[in-house]
Amino acid sequence: TGIVNVSSSLNVRSSASTSSKVIGSLSGNTKVTIVGEEGAFYKIEYKGSHGYVAKEYI
Rank of each mutant, 00 (worst) to 15 (best):
Thr1Ala: 09
Thr1Asn: 11
Thr1Leu: 12
Gly2Lys: 04
Gly2Asn: 06
Gly2Val: 09
Gly2Tyr: 06
Gly2Met: 08
Gly2Thr: 06
Gly2Asp: 04
Ile3Glu: 06
Ile3Pro: 04
Ile3Arg: 08
Ile3Lys: 06
Ile3Phe: 15
Ile3Ser: 07
Ile3Trp: 13
Val4Cys: 05
Val4Arg: 01
Val4Pro: 04
Val4Tyr: 03
Val4Phe: 04
Asn5Val: 12
Asn5Leu: 08
Asn5Met: 12
Asn5Asp: 07
Asn5Pro: 05
Asn5Arg: 07
Asn5Ser: 10
Asn5Ile: 13
Val6Asn: 08
Val6Glu: 06
Val6Leu: 09
Val6Cys: 12
Val6Thr: 12
Val6Ile: 13
Val6Gln: 09
Ser7Gln: 14
Ser7His: 13
Ser7Phe: 08
Ser7Thr: 13
Ser7Glu: 12
Ser7Asn: 10
Ser7Ala: 12
Ser7Asp: 13
Ser8Asp: 13
Ser8Val: 11
Ser8Lys: 12
Ser8Asn: 13
Ser8Met: 12
Ser9Arg: 14
Ser9Val: 13
Ser9Met: 12
Ser9Lys: 13
Ser9Cys: 11
Ser9Asn: 12
Ser9Phe: 12
Ser9Gln: 15
Ser9Leu: 12
Leu10Cys: 09
Leu10Tyr: 04
Leu10Lys: 03
Leu10Gly: 04
Leu10Asn: 03
Leu10Trp: 04
Leu10Ala: 13
Leu10Glu: 03
Leu10Phe: 05
Asn11Gly: 08
Asn11Leu: 15
Asn11Cys: 12
Asn11Ser: 14
Asn11Val: 15
Asn11Trp: 13
Val12Asn: 00
Val12Pro: 00
Val12Arg: 00
Val12His: 01
Val12Met: 02
Arg13His: 15
Arg13Asn: 14
Arg13Ala: 06
Arg13Lys: 08
Arg13Gln: 15
Arg13Tyr: 15
Ser14Asn: 10
Ser14Lys: 12
Ser14Arg: 12
Ser14Ala: 14
Ser15Met: 09
Ser15Trp: 09
Ser15Pro: 01
Ser15Gly: 13
Ser15Gln: 14
Ala16Phe: 04
Ala16Thr: 07
Ala16Pro: 13
Ala16Gly: 06
Ser17His: 09
Ser17Phe: 07
Ser17Arg: 07
Ser17Lys: 07
Ser17Gly: 07
Ser17Asp: 12
Ser17Val: 05
Ser17Ile: 06
Ser17Ala: 08
Thr18Asn: 15
Thr18Leu: 15
Thr18Met: 12
Thr18Asp: 15
Thr18Phe: 15
Thr18Cys: 13
Thr18Pro: 15
Thr18Val: 13
Ser19Thr: 12
Ser19Ala: 13
Ser19Cys: 10
Ser19Leu: 13
Ser19Pro: 06
Ser19Gln: 15
Ser19Asn: 12
Ser20Glu: 03
Ser20His: 05
Ser20Pro: 02
Ser20Arg: 02
Ser20Ile: 01
Lys21Thr: 13
Lys21Tyr: 10
Lys21Pro: 15
Val22Gly: 03
Val22Ala: 06
Val22Trp: 05
Val22Lys: 07
Val22His: 04
Val22Tyr: 06
Val22Arg: 05
Val22Gln: 05
Val22Asn: 05
Val22Phe: 07
Ile23Arg: 03
Ile23Cys: 04
Ile23Pro: 00
Ile23Tyr: 03
Ile23Lys: 04
Gly24Met: 04
Gly24Tyr: 05
Ser25Arg: 12
Ser25Lys: 14
Ser25Ile: 15
Ser25Gly: 06
Ser25Tyr: 15
Ser25Val: 15
Ser25Leu: 14
Ser25His: 13
Leu26Ser: 01
Leu26Trp: 02
Leu26Arg: 01
Leu26Tyr: 02
Leu26Gly: 00
Leu26Cys: 04
Ser27Trp: 09
Ser27Ile: 13
Ser27Glu: 14
Ser27Gln: 12
Ser27Gly: 12
Ser27Val: 14
Ser27Phe: 09
Gly28Lys: 14
Gly28Pro: 15
Gly28Tyr: 14
Gly28Ser: 14
Gly28Asn: 14
Gly28Gln: 12
Asn29Ser: 09
Asn29Trp: 13
Asn29His: 13
Asn29Tyr: 12
Asn29Met: 13
Asn29Phe: 12
Asn29Leu: 10
Thr30His: 07
Thr30Ser: 15
Thr30Tyr: 06
Thr30Asn: 06
Thr30Val: 10
Thr30Ala: 13
Lys31Met: 14
Lys31Thr: 14
Lys31Tyr: 13
Lys31Asn: 09
Lys31Ala: 11
Lys31Phe: 11
Lys31Ser: 09
Lys31Ile: 15
Val32Ala: 02
Val32Asn: 01
Val32His: 04
Val32Cys: 05
Val32Ile: 08
Val32Ser: 01
Thr33Met: 12
Thr33Ser: 09
Thr33Val: 14
Thr33Trp: 10
Thr33Asn: 12
Thr33His: 10
Thr33Pro: 03
Thr33Leu: 08
Thr33Ala: 08
Ile34Met: 04
Ile34Gln: 01
Ile34His: 00
Ile34Glu: 00
Ile34Val: 06
Ile34Tyr: 02
Ile34Asp: 00
Val35Lys: 06
Val35Gly: 02
Val35Asn: 04
Val35Glu: 04
Val35Leu: 14
Gly36Cys: 07
Gly36Lys: 07
Gly36Glu: 06
Gly36Leu: 05
Gly36Arg: 04
Gly36Trp: 04
Glu37Leu: 08
Glu37Pro: 03
Glu37Trp: 07
Glu37His: 07
Glu37Gln: 11
Glu37Asp: 08
Glu37Ile: 10
Glu37Ala: 09
Glu38Tyr: 09
Glu38Asp: 12
Glu38Cys: 09
Glu38Trp: 08
Glu38Arg: 06
Glu38Ser: 10
Glu38His: 08
Gly39His: 06
Gly39Asp: 07
Gly39Pro: 03
Gly39Cys: 05
Ala40Asn: 13
Ala40Ser: 12
Ala40Trp: 08
Ala40Glu: 15
Ala40Thr: 09
Ala40Ile: 11
Ala40Val: 11
Ala40Lys: 10
Ala40Pro: 09
Ala40Phe: 08
Ala40Cys: 10
Phe41Gly: 00
Phe41Ser: 03
Phe41Ala: 03
Phe41Gln: 02
Phe41Thr: 02
Tyr42Phe: 12
Tyr42Pro: 00
Tyr42Glu: 00
Tyr42Ser: 01
Tyr42Met: 03
Lys43Ala: 06
Lys43Glu: 05
Lys43Asn: 03
Lys43Pro: 00
Lys43Cys: 08
Lys43Thr: 04
Ile44Val: 06
Ile44Tyr: 00
Ile44Thr: 00
Ile44Asn: 00
Ile44Cys: 01
Ile44Gly: 00
Ile44Arg: 00
Glu45Arg: 09
Glu45Asp: 08
Glu45Lys: 11
Glu45Thr: 09
Glu45Gln: 08
Glu45Met: 13
Glu45Trp: 10
Glu45Ile: 14
Tyr46Lys: 00
Tyr46Asp: 01
Tyr46Cys: 04
Tyr46Phe: 14
Tyr46Val: 03
Lys47Phe: 11
Lys47Ser: 09
Lys47Glu: 14
Lys47His: 11
Lys47Gly: 12
Lys47Met: 15
Lys47Ile: 07
Lys47Pro: 02
Gly48Leu: 07
Gly48Asp: 10
Gly48Tyr: 06
Gly48Lys: 07
Ser49Thr: 12
Ser49Cys: 08
Ser49Pro: 01
Ser49Leu: 11
Ser49Asn: 08
His50Gln: 07
His50Trp: 12
His50Ala: 08
His50Val: 12
His50Gly: 04
His50Asp: 06
Gly51Val: 03
Gly51Trp: 01
Gly51Asp: 00
Gly51Phe: 02
Gly51Leu: 01
Tyr52Cys: 02
Tyr52Met: 02
Tyr52Ala: 01
Tyr52Gln: 00
Tyr52Asp: 00
Tyr52Trp: 12
Val53Ala: 05
Val53Glu: 00
Val53Ile: 08
Val53Trp: 01
Val53Leu: 04
Val53His: 01
Val53Lys: 00
Ala54Trp: 11
Ala54Asp: 12
Ala54Tyr: 11
Ala54Met: 14
Ala54Pro: 14
Lys55Gly: 02
Lys55Asn: 02
Lys55His: 03
Lys55Arg: 08
Glu56Leu: 10
Glu56Asp: 09
Glu56Gly: 07
Glu56Gln: 11
Glu56Thr: 09
Glu56Asn: 08
Glu56His: 09
Tyr57Gly: 14
Tyr57Ile: 04
Tyr57Gln: 09
Tyr57Asp: 09
Tyr57Ser: 09
Tyr57Cys: 10
Ile58Met: 04
Ile58Phe: 05
Ile58Trp: 04
Ile58Glu: 02
Ile58Arg: 01
Ile58Gly: 02
Ile58Gln: 02
Ile58Asp: 02
Ile58Ser: 02
